[in-house]
Nucleic acid binder design. Sequence first.
RNA 1: GCAGGGAUAGCAAAGCCUGGUCAAAUGCGGUAGGUUCAGGGCCUAUUCCCGUAGGGGUUCGGGAGUUCAAAUCUCCCUCCCUGCACCA
Length: 956
Amino acid sequence: MAIDYGEMEGRWQRAWNDAHVYESDPGEKPSALVTAAFPYVNEPQHIGHLRTYATADLYARYKRLRGFNVLYPMGFHATGTPILAIVKRLRNNDQELVNTLKTFEIPDDEIKKMEDPLYCANYIMRIDEEGMRLAGYGIDWRRKLKSIEPIFSKMVEWQFIKLKEMGLLKQGSHPVGWCTNEQNAVGQHDTKGDADPKIEELIAISFKDSESDAFFACATYRPETIDGVTNLFVGKGIDYVVARSGGKRYYMAKEAAEILSNQMEIEIEGPAGAEDLLKKMAINPSNGDVIPVLPGFFVKADVGTGIVMSVPAHAPFDYAALEALKREGYPIGGIEYRSVIRIDRPSAAVPPGELETARAGDPNVSAAAYLELIKGDPSPGDEVLERATKSVYREESHWGVMAVGKYAGKKEAEARGLISKDLLDAGSAFKMFELANEEPVFCRCGTRVVVKLVVGQWFINYGDEALKGKVKEYMNKMRFYPKGGVLTYRGVADWLGMRPAERAQGMGTRFPFNPEHIIESLSDSTIYMTLYTYINALRDADVKPEQLKPEFFDFVLLGRGGADMVAATTGIDAMVVRRCRESLEYWYNETSRHSGSDLIYNHLTMHIFIHLALFPETMWPKQVVTNGLVNYEGKKMSKSLGNIVPLKVGIRKYGADPLRFVTVASADLGTDTDFSVDGINSVRQKNDYLERLVLSLPGMKSQELSHGDYWLYSKLNSKIKAATACMDEMRIKDAYVEIYYNSVNELRRYMERGGSNELVLREFLEKIVIMMAPVMPHVAEELWHLLGKSTLVVQERWPEPDESMINREEEAIDDLIERTLSDIRQGIEMTSKMSSGAGKRVGRVEVIVAEDWKLGAYNALAEEKEIGKAMARPELKGIEREKLSKFMAQFAKSLNTMRKLPVISSESLLRGFMDARQYMAERAGAEIVPVGEADSRSARAGRARPDRPAIDIVRE
RNA sequence: GCAGGGAUAGCAAAGCCUGGUCAAAUGCGGUAGGUUCAGGGCCUAUUCCCGUAGGGGUUCGGGAGUUCAAAUCUCCCUCCCUGCACCA
C-alpha cells in the first residue's frame, strides 16, 4: 500500500481551508510575519521556485507550532519590461518561447491571448497561484496583491515622494546600451542572443593639428602610453568630418561622430578627407612632439573616434601597421619605437628560456615577447594581433611600472588613472563610452546597439553616506541565514551606489517627477511587505485608490497625524484607517524575509536600505533567509537542457510533500539541492513505512519498559532538543536528518530488536509527526489522524524535550551493542580462516562484560593521562595494585586519545546485552551469551574492557 | 580585473567556525547474500591497503608551518565556480 499523494493532499488542503487555518488576524499571541520575494510572472513557476516558497512556508509553520500567530501572505510581481518582452516575442511568433510555454501545459488558445500584456500577466499569475495552492503553502490568500494594481501604485508613489523629500533621489547622467531605432535603453534581455552590453569608459586625447585650431581626437584605453606615441593613424577609406563640441573642433570619423552624438553635444561642421589628414602633423599634448599622421590598416570608423594614437612599443596593432608601411616603402620618417613601461615582477613567474618558445595567448609571457613573435611574422592576422594585444594589456597592467615621465616608478595601473586625470584637467581629453563586447551587440530589432549617456535620469542614491553607515551598523544586529551572511550583505551595502529609479518602458507605476516614465521595477518593490498587513482592510471597506493620499500612508506607515485627520482628507472611514495602522503595528514587529540568494545583490539589500531610510527602527527588517538553487539530477535546470519541471507537473507526478522535502530539506540552506527521482522515491518509501507502522500500532501491547524502550525514549527527547536548536538557526537539513531520516532508522532498529511497546511507539510517532509538519504538512496531517487524533496537526504545539528522559547511559549501551556486534562478526570471519577454527561451526559467542572497577580506572586514566597519577587516585584505592597496573598498561600508547566514558554499571550493561540477545544472535548467526567478567570461565574474560566487552567465540 | 565561494574516498556530499570521539555521516554506484524475487523494489553485509579475532598502515587539491595531536588552525601555490548594475 502506498500513499496517494494527489488525493491525500487535496483532502487536507480542503480541511485547512474549511478551518481558515492560514487566515491570520491580529490577536493576543506574539506575531510573526513571514514574507518571500513575490514571484515574477513572466514565466510560470517550476520546481526550483518551490524551494524559496516552501522554505518560507516551513519557517512560517514552525513558528506557528512554536506558538506564534503567523501571517504568510503572497503577491505577484509584473512591473517592468520582461512581460513586454514576452509579449513582443509572442507577437513575433517566437517558436522557442511557444514551446517553453507548452511545456508548462498552456493551451494554444491561451498562448494566443497572452499577446496582451495584462492578460499574459494575469494568466501566469493564475497558474502560479494554482501551483502554490497545490504545493500546500499556508498562505493567507485574502491578502494577495499584485504590483500592477492601483493600491500598490499609490503606495509606491508615496514611497518616492518620501525618498525625494529625504534627498535620496538624485538626477544625473549614466551610460546605457541604446537602440537608436527603438529609442530605448537595452539590457541583456533586449539583445540578440541575450548578449549583455558591456559598457566601458575610455578617454579621447586631443592632439592639436600643427597648422590649425582643430584637434585629432584619439580614443584610448591606455592614456599612460602617451609618451610612447610615435604617430597617429587614420583609415584610408573612412569618411572623416570636422565636428564641433564644447567649443572645440575635432577631426574624427563620421560614423564615430554619429555614435558619440548619443553621449555628448556634437555638431558636424563639414567633411575632412582622409587624404587631407594624412598630410598633417599633430602635436602630442603631453610632450609637445610633432608627429606624422599615417594610414593604419586596422582603423575602423565605428570604433572609438576613428583616429588612433600609435604606440608601437606597447600595442601590437600599431607595431604591425608601422612595419607594414615600412615594407611598402611608405615614407614614415625617423620613427623610433619608444618603450615607456617596463615589466617588473618576481623572476619566478617566467622561467628563463621560455621566452623563445612562447606563443601568443600564453599568459606567462612578457610583452616584449609578443612583439618579437610578431616581428617574425611579416603580416600577422587580426586574430593574432588581438590576442597579443590582450596579453600585453594584461601583462603590463599587472606587472608594468612606468619607465619615463612624471610618474616614472609608479605601477602602470595607478599611473593610468593619474595621467588620465591630468589630461582631462588640462582640457586635453574628454571622456567617452564604448561597448567592450568582443562581438557587436544587436538589439532584438536588428539595430546595432550603441552607448548613450542618459542625462537628467533619476536615481536612488544608495551611496548616501549617512544612510549607508546606518545600514552597515544595523546589519550587525540583524539575523541572516544561512549564518555568516552578514559579510556578504555588508559588502553589497558598500558597493551599492546610484541606482536608476525610472525607466521609459514597461508596466508599473508612473514616476511622480517624470510621468512619462515608470518606476523601475526593483525600486518599486522594497516596502510592499507592509501592504500585506492591511490590504484586506482596504478591500473590505471598498476604499478607492484615489483616496489613498500621502496622508493615509504617513499615518499608517509612519504614525504621523491621526486617523480622524486622515479620514477627513481622504474620506476613508476613521475606523478603517485605525484598523490599518493597528494591523501594521501588530504584524510588522517580528518579520522574516525569504528569497533565493541571487537577490542578495539587489532586492534584499535594497529593501534594507529603504526600510531604514523611511521607517522607524521598530519596523526595520529583523531577519533575512536566503536559499540556493535546485538542480535536476545533478544538472542545472535550464531551457537549453530541457529539464525544467513545471511546478504543477512536479506536484502531480511526485506529490507536493516529497517534492517539498527533497527541495528544501535535503541540503543546507546555502547550497544547491538536487532534485532526483531517487530522492523522491526514498522519501515516499519512508512515508509508506511510517504509515504502515502507525497502522500496526493497535495490535501492540503496552508492557514493562525494556532497555529498548528507554533507548527509544531517550532518542526521542535528545532528538527534539537537537532538532529545535537546528530549526532555530534555520539548519533545515540537520533538523530533518534528526527528525526524519534518523527517526525512521531508529524505529526500524527498535522494531528489529523486538520492540513492541505501543505507548512508547505512539509517543515517539506523535512527536515526530508534529515535527515533520513544517516540511511535509499533508503527510503529517494524514499520520496524525491515523494516530487517532481529531485536531489539525498544523495547529499543534512543537514538542518540548523531556530532559529527564534523555539517557546517555541507554544510548551508550546501545552504541556498545552495535559495536560489539560488528566485532563479533569480524571475529567470526577471521577465526574461520584460522586453522583452529576452520571447518568448525560457531556454537556460541560469549560476551563478557568488564567488572565495574575497570570503568573507574579507565576514566581516571582518561583524566590524568598518566598511569602513575591515575593509580594514585583515591577512588581506586581498594583495587589490587598488580591487577590495576596491568589493566592500565594496555592503554599506555593511547593515553592522549582516551576520553571519559559515560558511567554505566556492569549490571545495566549486562541487562542491555540480555535484552538484545535475540537481535544480536540473528545478526551474528550464533547464540549470544552475555556474562559478567567474574562469572565467566573463559580464558578471554580478563580482556574485557569498559569500552569493549571481551568476546569469546566458541566453536564446536 | 574586482569581490565572494569552493577543492574530502568510484561519484555526489557532510565534517572544518569550537583541533583529539575521523578511515571520515549520508545517498548513489559496485560486490556478496537474502526475500516463493517476472522486472523494479525491499532487507542484510561489504566497498583505501594489509592482516590466521576486535589489530596495523597510508589518506581529506599541492607544499611548508603551529601542536603531544590537523580534513579541521596559519602561510604560500595550483585549479574550479558564481556575481559585477539599471536587469527581474
